[in-house]
């Protein structure tokens, strides 16, 4: 028997063993992630006649999304909120990460970073509730300002888009501070020194050297923010109330009150489509493996 054939045999046996190790995880993912996803796709093409589900290849649900104002407006609301949150969070988190990376003395750095992201671990639902506590009509801000005599009537802070954005930004500033900090700290300090040495001032050093070098980290963090934000139900539900509905809120309405699984599926597919577009737009700079 030739050596090549021998090697082939061992490889096959090796391969079989390898698959044995991979199989449980793979089967789990196929059964509980891929299959549901395919079914959801099929469901989005089914229709509801009365209370009965009719499978088929009908574009009716997607047509409905384009026609009914409360549906397509929901998509717009979701996009607006998500883009605002992403941009504001990056703009707030970058200076914070910068200060912790380059201004805080080395021995306090880890502590400062830990403190900056600790509330990240508050329970998700509780964090939104805590903001409600701060922003509600009878909440901490209004009570305090009225107690101090600064305002006579309570301000409308909760149940607004501002409240939703605030709750989101709070969460994502922590997340982005962490990713951007990790990016800044791994740059050789000699990049900054070299730029300064060649006559760049602090702004030029940032603009021409540090910003381009940290762009992949920023884009990765921003993409993560986008994905998590656009799919979230809890924050807009608690803080935004029912003044304007985001896509996840509409999906939950379809599931609950009307049991309209086909329409909910179509909305979910649209949500996935938007995330895919965001991925393609940022793929050039994305470093998902470095998360």
């Amino acid at each position: 028997m030739s050596d090549a054939a021998n090697t082939q045999r061992t490889l096959d046996r090796e391969g079989l063993r390898g698959w044995g190790f991979v199989a449980p995880a793979l089967l789990w993912t196929l059964a509980f992630f891929v299959l549901p996803f395919v079914v959801m796709g099929a469901m989005s093409l089914a229709t509801l006649e009365g209370r009965t589900l009719v499978w088929g290849l009908s574009p009716a649900n997607y047509a409905e999304l384009a026609e009914k104002a409360y549906l397509w407006r929901g998509i717009l609301v979701s996009l607006e909120i998500t883009l605002t949150v992403t941009v504001v969070s990056v703009l707030l988190a970058y200076p914070l990460a910068w200060i912790i990376a380059f201004r805080v003395p080395a021995r306090w750095q880890r502590l400062a970073l830990l403190l900056a992201i600790l509330p990240f671990w508050t329970s998700y639902v509780v964090r939104s509730y805590a903001w409600l506590l701060v922003l509600a009509r009878e909440g901490v801000v209004n009570r305090t300002l009225m107690g101090l005599g600064i305002i006579a009537e309570p301000l409308t802070l909760a149940n607004t888009r501002l409240a939703t954005v605030t709750g989101f930004v709070h969460f994502f500033v922590m997340l982005l501070t962490l990713t951007i900090f990790a990016n800044l700290i791994q740059l050789s300090p000699n990049y900054r020194r070299a730029a300064m040495d060649l006559g760049a001032n602090a702004f030029q050093t940032f603009r021409h050297v540090i910003l381009p070098l940290t762009l992949p980290g920023i884009v990765t963090g921003a993409f993560l923010t986008f994905v998590l934000c656009i799919g979230d139900y809890v924050t807009p539900q608690i803080l935004g109330g029912n003044t304007e509905l985001t896509v996840p809120q509409i999906i939950m309405v379809q599931l609950g009150r009307r049991a309209d699984f086909p329409l909910a599926s179509a909305l979910a597919i649209v949500l996935m489509g938007i995330v895919t577009l965001a991925y393609l737009a940022s793929a050039r700079w994305l470093r998902l493996d470095r998360l």
């Binding site: 050789s188 000699n190 990049y191 020194r193 070299a194 730029a195 300064m196 040495d197 060649l198 006559g199 760049a200 001032n201 021409h208 050297v209 381009p212 070098l213």
Partner: peptide, 15 residues
Amino acid sequence: AKRPTTTMFQDYALF
């Protein structure tokens, strides 16, 4: 930045 010196760094620090 204001000195008539430039440094060639050990890790080169090329951008």
